[in-house]
Design a protein around this nucleic acid. Structure first.
Lengths: 147, 147
DNA sequence: TATTGTTATACTCTATAACTATA
DNA sequence: TATAGTTATAGAGTATAACAATA
């Protein structure tokens, strides 16, 4: 018989698996890899930005971003534009098709949120979110201590 | 201003990222990749088992398991043993070193659970877990409908 | 015939290091 | 000198397809 602590963490891990499986579904439907989808999602949040900034946001090397942007450029989801003031840099910009993919992602995300939590009474949902957020705060503190 | 539904899902995604970062810490400390760690974890749960069974449990191809077992065999974490009754099959077994790695994983897992949830009052933790488990149930139903 | 695992081949993600162009 | 991005190289994870040994 496991501790309730462990049950909570195990269930969170199970939810992680399910969210990964949901991402895999989008991968199949869009023909895009998870890494490319994450880049598009980031670009949707930041707007047009440099590869350097993308590398930091995604926590990967600049070289890796070069490869991802190559692929997304070939598939017509992004374009490389000259940076307006720094001629060393490129600005990665969503094409119309890329922007549509990002909208699809956002819509799927909202649909999922509604399906998972739409039936939870407001008071209970608020308490749930509060505990989640406290857990994130503790976790972030732990990770900082180790860094 | 986002819906509380979306906030809940966003926070769960954030927790997923943190759990991935925590796994990455174990990867650095052990010198093992995430895929190999998952195989060891699975082997710790099932006990000695065939590559076929590992492929199903990990949801990857048999060929993939061959590569992972090759690596874990070279690093001394597992061995290939003849299957007692089926001469086509191999039984993958944890070595002492492999078993120790699994124990480290389990200990880290329990430590993390205690650090994250040890301070949450029992009633509140029970309510939290209940909502988590309902969310998993809804999510699993959704994924089945799509499959 | 069906199953277990491997060889052969290929693609994506990822990293480090060296290099070019620009700041 | 430092920064942005690319070329060169390498390794891990993953997949499909063809094959050998065994059931």
């Amino acid at each position: 018989m496991a501790d309730e602590h462990s049950t909570a963490l195990d269930t969170l891990l199970r939810l992680s698996e399910l969210m990964s499986a949901d991402l895999a579904r989008f991968e199949r439907e869009s023909g895009l890899s998870g890494s490319r989808i994450r880049l598009l999602w980031t670009l949707g949040i930041t707007g047009p930005t440099t590869q350097q900034a993308l590398a930091e946001a995604l926590d990967v090397t600049p070289r890796n971003v070069t490869g991802l942007v190559d692929g997304l450029s070939a598939s017509g989801h992004v374009t490389r534009q000259p940076h307006p003031t720094d001629r060393r840099a490129t600005r990665v910009t969503l094409t119309d098709a890329g922007a549509e993919t990002v909208r699809d992602l956002q819509r799927d995300h909202e649909d999922l949120a509604r399906q998972l939590f739409g039936g939870v009474p407001p008071r209970r949902l608020a308490a749930f979110v509060a505990t989640l957020e406290e857990t994130v705060a503790i976790f972030e503190r732990l990770m900082e201590e180790q860094a």
